[in-house]
Design a protein around this nucleic acid. Sequence first.
DNA 1: CACCATGTTCCTTG
DNA 2: CCAAGGAACATGGT
Length: 284
Amino acid sequence: MPELPEVEVLGRHLGSLLINKAVRSVQVHRQKSIRPTSARRMRDQLVGAKFKSIKRRAKYLIFEMQPAGGKPVFILLGHLGMTGRMYLQPKTVDLPKHAAVVLELVRHNFIFEDTRYFGRMTLGAGALDTLGPELLSEEFGGDVLREALSKSAQAIKVKLLDQSVVAGIGNIYASEALFHAGISPRKAARRLTRAECAALVVAIRGTLTKAIECGSTVPLDFSGAGERNGLFYFGQTDEWAGYYDEELLVYDRENESCARCGNPIRRIVQVARSTYYCPGCQRA
DNA sequence: CACCATGTTCCTTG
DNA sequence: CCAAGGAACATGGT
């Protein structure tokens, strides 16, 4: 279910439910989902430990865990992949078909469910080391972006998905941000001007910040059992119409007219992923 | 049956 | 050594 805004909202939600709760036992249903951590180490570390804090870095959830007996805190990392979900359920409710990992609390199970099993729950923060600057942080700005792009001949849209360049953008918001900045997704990264880089940073921040605000106001069902399934991409669900004051302007709108200039929106494929853009507003 | 999907990692090629 | 392209991972929806 992830792009950065979903992960951010999920993290806040889980924080309110999990802080100071202790793990009583651990069920690993899919070894693949905890790679390279072993099920045994997972249990050894987690059983008896309490959730101390929950933070987000890019699309990762960082669970800071406090073991019993004054042992040092350690990190449990979560990444949702394409279809991951995390939520609490009373133990009386049956586990979902694609439960990957279940952390048993007192009366609830903390469930990591993942239909396609692309996500992960692992021990240690090592996966964060290769990430580029955090999108919403102060140190990320037009100059930092420009420097990161300066040597690449790859299309800007493709570079935006590279988590070592900029950490946190996904396929949906990459298209949206380029539209807002008026930059063609095909433009070679190194050809972006200083002004374009500055505009792109503003567009990225604006798009993601707005999405987080919207996601925070919608009544979500993180288990995905009902309609409100934890996703809150703008315009996804008609019944949410009243909650949104903006929606996705290009993503998944092939052949619809651009809200700004009326030209039909185009879909192209870059590195095997769809890109949507307006040929009128985003000139090559 | 065909094609598409919010993401990352690994392997090959140049 | 690096950049870039593509397949792979696994399941479900249309």
